[in-house]
Design a protein around this nucleic acid. Sequence first.
DNA 1: AATGAATGAGCGTTCATTCAT
DNA 2: TATGAATGAACGCTCATTCAT
Lengths: 216, 216, 216, 216
Amino acid sequence: MNKMRNIRKGTGESRRGKETILLILNSAKTILIEQGYSKLSMRKVAVGAEISVGNLQYYYPSKNDLLKDLLDHSIDEFMNEFERLRVGVNNDPELHLRSIINFIVLDLGNPTTTTFYPELWALANHDEYADKLMDQIYARVRLPLEDCITRINPKLSVEQVKKVALFISASMEGMTMFVGNGKVWNDSIKQMANIAIMSFLQMVKKITPEDIDKVL
Amino acid sequence: MNKMRNIRKGTGESRRGKETILLILNSAKTILIEQGYSKLSMRKVAVGAEISVGNLQYYYPSKNDLLKDLLDHSIDEFMNEFERLRVGVNNDPELHLRSIINFIVLDLGNPTTTTFYPELWALANHDEYADKLMDQIYARVRLPLEDCITRINPKLSVEQVKKVALFISASMEGMTMFVGNGKVWNDSIKQMANIAIMSFLQMVKKITPEDIDKVL
Amino acid sequence: MNKMRNIRKGTGESRRGKETILLILNSAKTILIEQGYSKLSMRKVAVGAEISVGNLQYYYPSKNDLLKDLLDHSIDEFMNEFERLRVGVNNDPELHLRSIINFIVLDLGNPTTTTFYPELWALANHDEYADKLMDQIYARVRLPLEDCITRINPKLSVEQVKKVALFISASMEGMTMFVGNGKVWNDSIKQMANIAIMSFLQMVKKITPEDIDKVL
Amino acid sequence: MNKMRNIRKGTGESRRGKETILLILNSAKTILIEQGYSKLSMRKVAVGAEISVGNLQYYYPSKNDLLKDLLDHSIDEFMNEFERLRVGVNNDPELHLRSIINFIVLDLGNPTTTTFYPELWALANHDEYADKLMDQIYARVRLPLEDCITRINPKLSVEQVKKVALFISASMEGMTMFVGNGKVWNDSIKQMANIAIMSFLQMVKKITPEDIDKVL
DNA sequence: AATGAATGAGCGTTCATTCAT
DNA sequence: TATGAATGAACGCTCATTCAT
């Protein structure tokens, strides 16, 4: 079965077809990253993939179909790497938390990450599919975080753990626009990772249920 | 002198002209927020402002000119409110820090903020003006943060204070896509503010120069 | 006020604009008649009117808007001539009926009529606007027929008169595809008019309410 | 030999091939009737026949080839039924004329007839094949009409009989757009048949060579 | 200060057709 | 017989921009 989900049925099943799909997705990704979603057009994707517009639309009948596969494809690369982290870390939750934070913050330096994610966030405000996708991928990112937090600070309820994980994950995402590749503060990415690790670790250890749920 | 900087020279100086400019900017902002930058067009702005395309282009000869004023105009509203915070807070740096964090996190619930800022971040990756504007506004946001941090933790160098302020500011921005208006976690916005205050205050107090600059 | 009803608001109000609209409608009509509706495209209309596609779409935002005005415009020419018949005929209903039949049958020889009406009929089966338009124009054609029939044969009820008028009108339309301009039987158009006059006049005089409504 | 004339040579000779051709023709006919000729495309036909575009083009190398067979196929159904009329009617020419008129007028209520024939007429104005086909089928329809007329009114010349038959046939076709299936006057179809029979029978009996050929 | 008219490029999409398998 | 892959042209339409009035 074909992994790509939004192509026309009965398409991309021959070896040649699969190669063409990869050419298309890579072309689309390059344009999205270099020029932004507002400049992404079927014509440009076709030129980038060195195929005709007609052939592009043979695989992706509508631009939206292409966008869906593009988002899936772009995110898969990150998720595959991220979920390899889980493996190969010993049982120490603090160490695991450190390694996750370190991985995510340093990944922000990746030029693809720097430009792709802000496009995704903006898109999610206007496109249902992008919105659902975001929910899914960040839920998967928070899973190991929640596991670490629960083990480091067992006094927190399940709901509270989820909120702390969300806070940590969201905080790191926020750095994208400032320390990402080509950004003014890109040189400080290591220090940001240091501050993040120190800050989040301290917080996870010390925070109490009351700290989270108090009403002022 | 006219406050708007990117309109045609000698334009928007009469009362009627100023009203038209406001109609234009509000129309543009509505479209940017409701439909995203990729759907923003001169035609739609003109329709929204109930003027002709020709007249719109009398004020803003090019779409880029309009975009510039749109960004300025949209950000001014936030900055005006933000800088009013400074006034009316007594001399306690910790209290001031708390109030800044609280203000920014709770502001994320604002629907305009939720959708406008991701558009700005995405834009900044491809548009020089948006990029510079981001630098300027976030530098202004960090100023009071840096002041508080210096006074709470005097051992930090000027550079280190800047990085801590950046970390705090960036962290809070990262919550936009998760706890903003209409987002899945919007109900948890108060708890996010609590975690943020607890987390950042603790960190600012405890962090050492070595924590920030150590190399692993 | 502008006579054309389906153009963009605030358009076609200057003398130049009105001239352009006429160029457009004439171009569209020529294409419809020479090549048929399936070959009618905005591009071809623009070429025929010697304007840009953009300008064409400035006047007619959608192809459907153009089609509507095209149908209105094309029919107006016939209706104007047809309704001039009413005037200048003395009070004799038989004479009036003869002149109507004669006019309509001979008009079928008009090359525009020959090709335009079959397109309209086909269109009416798939396009609501064309369907309604057909109803309206043929109702207007039947009005004077109904008047003559009532006066020639007063025994018929209002409903029966309507049906006889419909029969006569429909019968004449049916000749379009056979005796119209360029058709095999075009040379027989005069004889067709003779047969029609003799046949319909005889029938209107002799037909009884029972002839029409009997059930076999 | 294969009955279909416009398919690729050596094609449609196996049982499977014949079934596929029927699927194709039925799909094409459905589209022609439901959406009109302007919406008829090879793609839609292939989808409707549940085969690939490539396979469709194996049978019909060009759209025009398909159109030809489509017209032949669609008309055959009517002609088969029509020519069955001849059989089973006794020798009375007046009775035969009545039954022909009745059959044709009532057939207009058939939804296929209602929409198919106007498409054919419009097509005949721009397509040579459709034009020739029309000539052929209506000549076949007029044959029994001419036979009846000659026997009812022997004073008419051969040419005059042909014109009277044409008049009758054309008149009935004209009702398609008004009393056909789904049309406003569909309920009056029986009365239309009555008026037609009364009108045409009277005319055939009474009309003189001078009525037809007089010049005014 | 404002409108209407016009252009030309580009958009997403559909299409008939060709061809290798 | 039948499919999947590919092309190139055309489609309806939107767009930023220019210009005369």
